[in-house]
Design a protein around this nucleic acid. Sequence first.
DNA 1: CATTCAATGTTGGCGCTGTCAACATGGGTG
DNA 2: CACCCATGTTGACAGCGCCAACATTGAATG
Lengths: 249, 249
Amino acid sequence: MSPRAQAPGGGAETGGGTGAKPGTKPGAKAPGRRAYHHGDLRNALVDAALEMVRTGGPEAIVLREAARATGVSSTAAYRHFESHRDLVEAVKERAGARMDAEVAARLTDEPARADRGEEAVRRMRAVGRGYVRFALEEPGLFRLIFRQYADAPMPEGDPVSEAPPLTERNSSYMSMSEALDELVEAGELAAGRRAFTDVAMWAAVHGISTLLLETDLSRLDKRAREAAVERVFDVVFHGILTNLDTSAA
Amino acid sequence: MSPRAQAPGGGAETGGGTGAKPGTKPGAKAPGRRAYHHGDLRNALVDAALEMVRTGGPEAIVLREAARATGVSSTAAYRHFESHRDLVEAVKERAGARMDAEVAARLTDEPARADRGEEAVRRMRAVGRGYVRFALEEPGLFRLIFRQYADAPMPEGDPVSEAPPLTERNSSYMSMSEALDELVEAGELAAGRRAFTDVAMWAAVHGISTLLLETDLSRLDKRAREAAVERVFDVVFHGILTNLDTSAA
DNA sequence: CATTCAATGTTGGCGCTGTCAACATGGGTG
DNA sequence: CACCCATGTTGACAGCGCCAACATTGAATG
C-alpha cells in the first residue's frame, strides 16, 4: 500500500535530470524525449523541490510546482510520496546530506597540526566554521534541515529509546564528538567532564548560526559576524580545555 | 491606504475577549452580545492565532480560521492586517513579549548572592534556564519567535545601519548582556574580552534550546536534558570567567 | 438633533493549493 | 503473445489567501 519506489540510494546530485536508472537498457531514454514513464521521477521531484527551498525556504516547497517544473502532471508525485509532508522529509534528508558534504569538504582548509590536541581543536574549529558558513550561504536548506513538525511527540515518561542512536545522522556533530574523544585521550579534557561536552559544543555552533540567520544579528557586517563566531569558539574552547593554546589560526 | 488601526499598545493578555477599547463609554458592549462592530477585533484575532501557534506551530496560523474562531467573517481581518504575513508578524511580537515575561518571572527562583560576580552569574544561569524552559514548554511560540521569512535581505555591502539598536528587543539577551557588564566591573571578566561575549552566551543558550527541540536530542529524557543544559552553562562560564566559582546552584 | 462619512464588517468570487477517485499507458514477466 | 502492475493522467473537491463591491455603524459636524 505504501508508495515510495526503489529509490536508488540517494547519490543523485542536483545535476540535470539525466539520471536513468542503472540496470535498464541504455538508449531507451534519450535526453529530451519524455516518455510516458519518466524513469527517475522521485529524484527529479526532490531536485526541483530542493531548488525551491534554496531560494524560498522550507515553505516554498509546493508539490504541484515541483511536478510542473519536472514536466509531469500535478498528481504524479503521489506515486512516490504519500503526501506533501513526505516530499518535504525527502528534501530534508537530501539537504542534510548536502550540508554534511559541504562542511566536510572544508575540513582541510587549514594545515593539520602535529600536536594531537591542537589538531583536534583545529578540526572542531574547522567544522564549526563550515557549519556557520553553510547556514549563511544556504539559509533555506539550513532552515529546512532543522525544522521539526509541531506534532512530533515529546517524550515525558517514555521508558523506551533513551539509548545510543540519537544524533548519529549529523556528521558535523559526530566529527566534533570524535575530536573531543581525542582530547580526552590526549589528556586535554578530563574524562569526568566529557559527558555532554559534545552537545555543548554543538549548541554553541548551532546557536550562533541560528542567531545570525533569524535575529537582528543578521544585520552585523562581515567583520563583526566573524568576530562573533570566533568569540564563540574562544569561549567554548577555553571552557573545555585545561592547558592548551586555543587561539585562532 | 495602509490599514492597521490605532491598536492600543499591546497590553491585552490572552484573557477572554472582554477587552473593550478604553475611552469608549461602558455598557455599550455587554459580554455575549456581538454587535456589528467587534470593538477589539485586532487583538482578538491575534489571540486566536496565538492559540493556534501554541498547538500547531507557526504554520498553523490560518487567517480564515482565526476569523471563524473570533466569530467574524473571513475577510474582516483585512481591516486590521495587510496580509496573512502581517498577522503572523503581530503574533510573533506578542509571542516574544510573552517569552520575555515568562523568562523574567523566573529570574528570582533562586536567592540572590552577596558577591556581585556570583550574583551576575546566577542571574545569567537563571535567564538561561528560563529560556530553555520556555522553548520546551512552548515550542510553537518559540519556533515562531525565531523564524525569519526567507526573503529578508541579507546585508553584504550595506553601508547603512550597522549601528547599535540591533537586538535591543530581546530582553533575555539584554539581561545576560547587562550581567556581563557587571562581571567586567567586578573584575571577573577582562574588558578586552567583553566584546561579543554576550552574543556567545546567547548563542549557547539559544543553541541548546533549538537542538532540544529540532533534533534527535529531543529524545533525551528529563535527566539527560538537564545535564546537557547544565554542561552548556558550565562550559560557557568556565570559558568566560577567570577566577570565580561557577558551579551550579 | 439630523446628516454625513470614514472605519469597520459582509458577501461573492478568483486562482492557487493538497489530495482523492477513476482512468490510461506501457514495459517486463508469465 | 497476453497480461498486469507500476507509473502517470484527468477531473474534481474543499480550503486557503486575497480582492472588489456592498452594508452597517458610531461619532463628529452643521
